[in-house]
Design a protein around this nucleic acid. Structure first.
Lengths: 333, 333
DNA sequence: TTTTAGCACTTATTTGTCAAGAGTGCTAAA
DNA sequence: TTTAGCACTCTTGACAAATAAGTGCTAAAA
């Protein structure tokens, strides 16, 4: 792969990202200041095709990038500072809002990314199970309802409601607070389980009718799938790829299945931008799409993952640039 | 409108709902046990068209129902007990799950309706602003973070986090609990406002640095748009209407705009099934779609609204039957 | 008076053909 | 090594013709 070939490949990919049409040798000569004739470009293109970076849709058509082509582009060729002043200002204005909860920040970030990149954006909160409990508090609401609030060492907050068939007294709440904090402080969230229930019941001699529903509900909350945030589904429908009913349907099916989205977001390396192009994706259903994710960690705290999902013909340069910038901003918060 | 005309109209509508193709005079004779020739049906159809219940797509085509036709069908002709044993069993199994929070019930109900009807289903929780406060509790998390929990007289629970630039003591929390409950018990949620802040500051002589963020955040939480629950977006894409890119795009645009969905769900009569057919909808964007909503109240408590959104060619009989049944079940809970 | 057989007429849909256009691969010359 | 030139391939759009589905109307039958 000499330099000229790379330049031509880059031109093909960028032209294709812009126009969504197969790229001809002529159009490259015209628009990409390469000082050769179309015949020369044609020869180079034939070789690029032989090594699998580009493809033809039919014998006499222009070329489109293959997944392998995009991969080289993403790894070596693209500009990852492709972000302008207007975009920077917009992102700043959004991210400067004061937020009290990580959830709000996730929502804002997700919608901001979708606005700036014009792609559908998904996000998921940090995994609860692996975190350690810092504090747990019970609050009596009315006479037969408790709210339990869990605070983890990483600052994640989980709350849930537990209903009882009998009245609960403020004294009981106080005891519960004492027992649970005493037992759980510093422990991982997933240690709220059956053995704990038995331990409290037998060693601390506390009413099972109260303990049991609490443990069960806390266990449920801690283990339930994290919520998925989704923004800009409609953005995808502006893309020419979505003229194909097949593609549109697959896309909607994908983002409608929260488990698939959760899996997608929970793979990849932390604090790095992960790009999965077309059939690089393990999931067969994703072969026509690309995903760019970012698992955000800050000061060793897991802050969840944000991902962009779109057609393989995605503006990787813009997407990656925006992700990088947002990450920098988030770490400054 | 004599009886025979109504029968023919019903046949046309039900055939169209099944096939999504314009209905010819011949097909009705064949499939709907009406003992007349196609010529007779044709004459009747010409008259039904004259009064606006059905329409033609071109001079020699079969007929499709107009909004007015669907309206008559919904008001007078359809079977609202169109639900079979398998569906009843399925709904029962889903709704029998024990839930601690209204939110969980809403989620389950929404997805159940979508599964049974095969249409996209949306829901919104009860409006908070109009409810009265029963209890308010503050919980200290760490040293600079409060969780505020609001319980309304209707049983709605709202919680939120407030962060401070200074440490908060347990004594302060106790005072806050006293002040707020004392002042707000029995008051509507939207009375948490600036005047209240000033009152507490001046009359109770309490630190503004603590009061102000609390009031602001509570106010924000109480007034923010209720969350929208959405299930089965992909179901819509199985319908022949969604072969049209135009329709598909409009649909996605609609359900992506939470404010439109909220408006939609917040109109209509409580405890009644509301049907809006095609251009009966006020919103121009909805002219190709129908909405069936149900504002659920029980023992005078607002429990939110559930809605089905689909093409005007919707299986109203099934949708209304399922809604009615679900309502009955919910009221038994 | 109501119903219906029969037929002319309308429109959509499908199929085939043709010409134009875009782009390639290859050859031979620069 | 590059490129002009040209034959070749495939797509796209336009047009025409054939087919099919269905209506409206007329005149006869019930």
């Amino acid at each position: 792969m000499d330099n000229r070939k790379k330049k031509i490949l880059q031109a093909i990919i960028e032209e294709y990202i812009n126009t969504a049409e197969p790229v001809s040798s002529g159009s490259i000569v015209k628009r990409y200041g390469l000082d050769f004739s179309s015949a020369t470009i044609r020869n180079e293109m034939a070789e690029l095709e032989k090594v699998g970076y580009i493809e033809k849709t039919h014998t006499s058509s222009g070329r489109i990038p293959s997944a392998k082509g995009y991969r080289l582009y993403v790894d070596e060729l693209l500009n990852d500072q492709n972000i302008n002043l207007a975009e920077i200002k917009y992102i700043q204005s959004k991210l400067n809002a004061k937020v009290n909860e990580l959830e709000d920040l996730t929502k804002i970030t997700t919608s901001t990314i979708s606005e700036v990149t014009h792609y559908t954006t998904v996000a998921i909160g940090p995994k609860a199970q692996i975190q350690n409990i810092q504090e747990i508090k019970f609050v009596l609401l009315g006479t037969r309802m408790l709210m339990a609030v869990l605070l983890t060492e990483d600052g994640l907050i989980k709350e849930t409601i537990i209903k009882f068939d009998q009245d609960i007294t403020e004294d009981q709440v106080e005891t519960l607070n004492y027992i649970f904090n005493n037992k759980l402080r510093g422990m991982p969230l997933d240690s709220i389980d059956k053995p704990l229930e038995e331990y409290i019941f037998s060693h601390m001699n506390y009413s099972l009718a109260v303990i049991k529903p609490i443990i069960e509900q806390l266990n449920r909350v801690v283990n339930e799938e994290e919520k998925i945030y989704l923004e800009g589904t409609n953005k995808a429908f502006e893309l020419p790829e979505f003229k194909s009913l097949e593609i549109a349907k697959n896309f909607i099916n994908l983002i409608d299945q929260k488990e698939i989205m959760a899996d997608l977001l929970n793979t990849g390396f932390a604090n790095d931008i992960n790009v999965y192009i077309g059939d690089e994706n393990e999931n067969e259903k994703l072969k026509d799409f690309s995903i760019v994710t970012f698992r955000h960690r800050y000061k060793n705290k897991d802050l969840g993952t944000i991902g962009i999902i779109g057609p393989t013909r995605m503006d990787y340069s813009k997407v990656i640039s925006v992700m990088k910038y947002i990450n920098k901003k988030l770490n400054g918060k």
